[in-house]
């Protein structure tokens, strides 16, 4: 019986993995084919990878775009995690009526479609530009500033803090740690997996962010990866082989971040801490 269940589990997961991974494999194959074969859905690896890669390096500044995206994503991830977890922790551990109401108001900010606030936000950055060009329009800072402080991560950390025993905080206080000490020395290490999940999501969101960087970044040397890919598909005669090569290169960093982070998801590690 147990054996059968095992087999069934593996079967189920394998099918799910196959369905999930198929488009990725298709991308890998397409990367080695020329455009005409890609559009006709050829599923056999070809011999055009080097050619596609050369064209890509020739036509675009993918190195610069990768660097810009990477820089933005790393800064965004670090700051988002820090600011989001501080607030999520603050709202849950120092809970008060006033903060609860404030929390609900903050949550409102994630409910409006970004397209609706984009133009006023753009105008805001236009005004900032006059006084502080370092964070104004057409700077990498402008591309990530609105994304590092989000209700999403505050909410996420707060919900996870709910699951995390408050006794830990109490224990920390009894041990004589200060409030900040408890956060940095107990909460942060204990919530490692929550941080890992948040890091994956924050990195990915930043890496794939399109609309805001599109309007706010104007010079070609500030281009990020999604903008570069959008440009590749823009002409009347797009080269799908080159596009697929660019997409594979663009997908690898997030896939890698995920693969490194998911190792933290090891069951039962926390079991003992709570005791």
């Amino acid at each position: 019986m147990k054996q059968i269940k095992r087999v069934f589990t593996y079967l189920f997961l394998s099918v799910a993995a196959l369905v999930s991974i198929f488009p990725f494999i298709w991308m890998l194959i397409s990367m080695t084919n020329k455009s005409v074969d890609v559009t006709s859905g050829r599923l056999i690896p070809g011999t055009h990878f080097i050619e596609n890669l050369n064209k890509l390096l020739d036509q675009t500044q993918i190195g610069i775009a990768l660097w810009n995206s990477f820089l933005i994503a790393v800064i965004t991830t670090v700051l988002t995690l820090l600011i989001g977890s501080l607030a999520g922790y603050g709202f849950e551990i120092y809970r008060s009526k006033g903060k609860d109401i404030l929390f609900n108001i903050l949550i409102l900010s994630m409910m409006i479609p970004f397209a609706a606030i984009m133009i006023p936000l753009y105008r805001l950055f236009g005004q900032i530009s006059a006084d502080a060009p370092l964070i104004g329009l057409d700077t990498l800072a402008a591309a990530f500033l609105p994304t590092i402080i989000t209700a999403f991560f505050i909410f996420f950390f707060r919900q996870n803090t709910k699951m995390f025993a408050k006794e830990l905080v109490e224990a920390g206080r009894i041990d004589g740690l200060g409030e900040w000490g408890i956060f940095f020395r107990i909460y942060m290490p204990t919530m490692k997996t929550t941080y890992a999940a948040a890091a994956i999501i924050a990195f990915m969101n930043s890496w794939n962010n399109y609309l805001w960087p599109l309007v706010v970044l104007q010079s070609p040397e500030k281009q990020t990866i999604p903008l570069l890919i959008s440009n590749l598909g823009a002409g009347y005669t797009p080269d799908y082989g080159v596009i697929m090569t660019a997409i594979v290169i663009a997908t690898l960093p997030t896939a890698l971040v995920f693969f490194l982070m998911q190792r933290h998801f090891v069951a039962g590690m926390m079991g003992s801490v709570k005791g």
């Binding site: 133009i119 236009g126 609309l211 599109l214 104007q218 070609p220 903008l227 440009n231 598909g233 823009a234």
Partner: peptide, 24 residues
């Protein structure tokens, strides 16, 4: 000469012109 996809140009131009911010 700066390359932008056509839809991207439409969005950037609309955003810039409607906000009255001509920078960039």
């Amino acid at each position: 000469i700066i390359e932008n996809a056509q839809d991207d140009i439409v969005q950037k131009l609309n955003t810039g012109l409607s906000s009255g911010t001509m920078k960039g």
